[in-house]
C-alpha cells in the first residue's frame, strides 16, 4: 500500500510509549475494552475482514492471535497489517514457540514499520496441541525475556546484542497472566516478574472462577502491581454447558467452576448461550468496579458476531476517542 511510508516512523507524542489508541485510552483513565480475532486457516482475507466488521468501533484494540493453540493460520503480522488497513488497531501477538531471537527481532521491526503499535508477548501453547505436533519447537527465549527484549528495543533503542537500532520500534507492550494455573500462590509473583521485565499492560486468561480472581486481584493490589501496569480481565462468554465442561476438563490451566456449568445447564432450552452472555455481562459489571482492573479483554472465540451486542449490553459503547 502506498500509505506505508515513513509516517510509520514518527515518534510517539509526549511521553507515550507508543501512542497507540489502547495506550491512550488506558492513560486517559477510561475502562479499556479489547477484542480478539484469530486469522483464518488459509489466506482468506474476506473471512478475516468479515470478523473485523464485528469488532470495528466496538473495542479499543484487537488481539491478533499467533498460531493459537499451535494450529497454523495466517501470520499474525500480516493479519495485523490487514487490520490496520481496515481501520482497526491490532494488538499483535507473538509466541516464542515458532521464532528464534533473530526472527523475533526482525518481525518486531517489521511490525513497527507496518504501523503496528501494540504487541503481546507469549510463550505459546505447546505444539503437541496443534495440527503440526511433529514440529521442532524453538523457545530460544521465553515470554519474560521477550517482554524485556522488545522494551529494550523501544527504550534503549538497542538490539539484544547492544547494537544501536536505526529507528527503534515504539510499541506498547503487553503480556498474559493466568491466575488459574498452578501453583496459585506463585501467580502474583509471576505477574510482578512480567511487570519488572517491562510489561505495560496485562491481559488475563479467561476468568470463570470469580472467587479465585477476587483473591488474586487483592494480592495484586496489596503488592501495588496495578499501579505499575494496566490489568485487563479476560472474558470469554460460554456458548453452552458443553463448551464449559469441555474447557474446564480439556484446557490446561482453565478453571471452570461446577456452579457455572450447572447454571448453564439450568437455562431454558435454547437459552444456554444467552445465559453464558449474561454471566459475562455480570462479570464485566463487577470488573468495572474491581480495584486494580483497568479494562476487559473480550475473547469471543469464533463468535465475533456477538461482540457488538455484548459491547452494547455491557455499556461499553461508544468507545472513547482520545
Amino acid at each position: 500500500m502506498s500509505e506505508i511510508n515513513s509516517e510509520n516512523n514518527v515518534k510517539p507524542e509526549g511521553d507515550f510509549k507508543s501512542g497507540s489508541n489502547l495506550e491512550k485510552v488506558l492513560r486517559a483513565g477510561h475502562f479499556a475494552f479489547t477484542g480478539e480475532c484469530g486469522p483464518p486457516k488459509g489466506a482468506n482475507v474476506h473471512h478475516l475482514v468479515e470478523k473485523f466488521h464485528h469488532l470495528k468501533g466496538n473495542v479499543d484494540a484487537v488481539n491478533i492471535t499467533d498460531n493459537q493453540t499451535a494450529v497454523v493460520r495466517m501470520s499474525s503480522l500480516a493479519a495485523s497489517h490487514l487490520m490496520i488497513d481496515h481501520g482497526l488497531e491490532p494488538n499483535f501477538q507473538m509466541v516464542c514457540r515458532d521464532r528464534n531471537r533473530l526472527a523475533i527481532t526482525s518481525d518486531i521491526l517489521g511490525a513497527y514499520a507496518l504501523g503496528i503499535r501494540n504487541m503481546l508477548c507469549l510463550s505459546g501453547d505447546h505444539q503437541s496441541f496443534g495440527n503440526h505436533p511433529e514440529a521442532k519447537n524453538v523457545h530460544d527465549i521465553d515470554s519474560m525475556q521477550l517482554i524485556n527484549l522488545v522494551t529494550t528495543m523501544r527504550d534503549k533503542e538497542e538490539f539484544l546484542n547492544g547494537e544501536k537500532i536505526d529507528v527503534a520500534p515504539k510499541l506498547f507492550v503487553g503480556a498474559a497472566c493466568n491466575p488459574f494455573a498452578d501453583p496459585f500462590e506463585y501467580r502474583v509473583y509471576r505477574l510482578a516478574n512480567k511487570i519488572a521485565a517491562g510489561a505495560d499492560f496485562i491481559q488475563t486468561q479467561c476468568i470463570y472462577n470469580m472467587d479465585k480472581f477476587r483473591t488474586f486481584m487483592k494480592q495484586v493490589v496489596d503488592m501495588g502491581l496495578h499501579e505499575k501496569c494496566y490489568i485487563l480481565a479476560g472474558v470469554t462468554p460460554m456458548k453452552s454447558a458443553r463448551m464449559a465442561s469441555f474447557m474446564g476438563k480439556m484446557v490446561p490451566g482453565m478453571d471452570v467452576p461446577e456452579s457455572l456449568i450447572n447454571r448453564l445447564k439450568g437455562a431454558e432450552k435454547g437459552k444456554q448461550a444467552e445465559e453464558g452472555i449474561k454471566f459475562a455481562l455480570e462479570q464485566i459489571e463487577e470488573f468495572k468496579e474491581m480495584k486494580g482492573v483497568a479494562g476487559v479483554h473480550l475473547m469471543a472465540i469464533e463468535w465475533e458476531q456477538m461482540v457488538p451486542e455484548i459491547a452494547e449490553r455491557a455499556g461499553m459503547l461508544p468507545r472513547p476517542v482520545v
Binding site: 510463550s123 521465553d142 494455573a181 498452578d182
Partner: peptide
C-alpha cells in the same frame, strides 16, 4: 516442555 527460564507457564496444572 518449553525450556522456559521463567516459569511455570499458564498451562501448568496440579
Amino acid at each position: 516442555a518449553k525450556s522456559l527460564l521463567h516459569g511455570p507457564c499458564g498451562g501448568s496444572s496440579k
